[in-house]
Structure formats: C-alpha cells, structure tokens
C-alpha cells in the first residue's frame, strides 16, 4: 500500500528526514514511535504534501503511484488521510458543509456520484451513531470552540466518512483523556480490514494498548532505527528510546 524508500527531507535547509525506509502492506496497521524532534510530524506532513518541506531524495509509492508527484488534494482523493495533531479551525464554515464538500471532492475524483444534502445527512448520521457522537458535532463550525478531545473526534468522524485506504494518525493521542482516546481507537479499529491501512504516529505506548499494531518502527534522528512486533512498543516504554535504539 505504502512504500517509502530512502526518503530525505529538509525544512528551511535543515535536514530532518535522513533516509526513511518503511513499508505498510494493505490491511496492516503500523506504528511509528519516536522521541520529540525525531521527525515524526515531518514524516506525516511530507506524506500528505504540505508546503515548506523540501524532499531532497528517495521515493514514495502509494497504491502503486508516485505519491510525491501528487498535489495534497490528489493524495486525499487517492485515499490518503491525515488525522492532524492540531486540527484547524474554519470560522463560519459549517462542519456538515465542510464534510460534504470534502466527501464529494473525493467521490468526484473516484468517479462516484456526488451526494446531495439529504443523502449526505443520512450517511453522516449513521457514522455519528456508530462512533457514539452527538449530531451537534456536524451542526457546529469546523473545529471552532471545540475542546481538544472534540477536535480529535471530529478527525475520526472525517476519516470514517472519507473511508481512506491509508490513514496517518499524527499524535492523535496527545492531549486526550482516556475516554476520548478510546473513541478514537474504536473509530480506527472499526475500519480495520483488508482495504485499510494505518500509520499511527505516537510518542507514547498508551494509544497502542487500544490500537494494537501489526508492526512498530522506531524513528530517531530522521531514520528508522529498529522495527519489530507490537511488543517492541512495550519494550520502548519500559526501557526508553536511547537504550532500545542502541
């Protein structure tokens, strides 16, 4: 599904990613763990195509396509979803309108018919119910006045609606209490299946108690220094990054 080979990237001339090799097969959930400043967020932004990150080497294929040649919205249409660490507020823009516009943009790109307001509402209600979220969520403006937990839940709702092939969760657990953490984890687990892969980026092990990964990769100073089964996360938690990586 996702194949990263020798990826290097800079921010304002400073090398951050120094040669990443990583492969996430279809249907698998992989975790990327690393200390602060190791390049976790840079990796997720580079994969999603954010401006301001210069790719200096390597290649990334997504579903067989050259991911790095695509615009951010083309990546989204191809099925790549990034759950933001800090979801952005859009004042005056209704959440329902935003979600429908996004869903229709993606459907259009896939050659599927667009949904009208009624069809969308029906679908959104079903997803809200499955995620145990209130309908209030889609009546408010996008993330405006949302608590940290509500913002993360809104990300999960968007993911559920857009049904991506690959979801990148960028420290989705940061700032979440245990209840919100469970809702987020349930949302991701509900999507698990042969057509869904995820890259869970996190600093701590606790999210991985709820989303049990198929593999864990340790990112330090811009490189994957170690990969292993889910138990590697526990090892990291117990012994610290420095020791495991040594």
């Amino acid at each position: 599904m996702l194949k990263i080979e020798g990826l290097t990237a800079e921010v304002e001339g400073r090398p951050i990613l120094k040669g990443i090799d990583l492969e996430v097969p279809a249907g698998e959930v992989h975790a990327v763990m690393g200390p602060n400043g190791s390049g976790k967020s840079t990796l997720s932004y580079v994969l999603a195509g954010r401006e301001g990150y210069e790719i200096t080497g390597g290649r990334v294929t997504f579903d067989g396509r050259d991911l790095l040649a695509m615009e951010p919205e083309e990546r989204a249409a191809a099925g790549l979803f990034l759950a933001f660490q800090y979801p952005v507020e859009l004042p005056g823009v209704g959440n329902a309108n935003f979600l429908r516009t996004a869903l229709n943009a993606v459907r259009r790109a896939r050659g599927e018919p667009e949904l009208d307001a009624m069809q969308f509402l029906k679908l959104a209600r079903a997803k809200l119910k499955a995620l145990h979220m209130s309908e209030e969520m889609i009546k408010r403006n996008v993330n405006v006045g949302f608590s940290g937990g509500e913002k993360k839940r809104n990300e999960v709702l968007q993911m559920a609606l857009l049904e991506p092939k690959l979801a990148i969760l960028d420290e989705t657990d940061s700032g979440l209490d245990i209840d919100a953490l469970k809702i987020v984890a349930d949302g991701v687990n509900a999507m698990r299946g042969p057509g869904f892969s995820a890259l869970v980026i996190t600093h701590y092990q606790r999210l991985l108690d709820h989303i049990v990964p198929d593999r864990v990769h340790v990112l330090m100073d811009g490189r994957i220094v170690k990969s292993g089964p889910a138990s590697l996360a526990l090892e990291l938690e117990a012994e610290g990054y420095a020791k495991v990586a040594a």
Binding site: A48, P72, E73, A76, L82, V88
Partner: peptide, 15 residues
C-alpha cells in the same frame, strides 16, 4: 492561514 488551506486540501478540496 496556510494551515487552513492545507487542512482543506488534505480533505480533498482543491485550492
């Protein structure tokens, strides 16, 4: 803001 635009584009909206 650049982050608002990127957020929308990541969800599939054109610029």
């Amino acid at each position: 803001a650049e982050d608002q635009l990127f957020y929308c584009r990541q969800r599939g909206l054109s610029e």
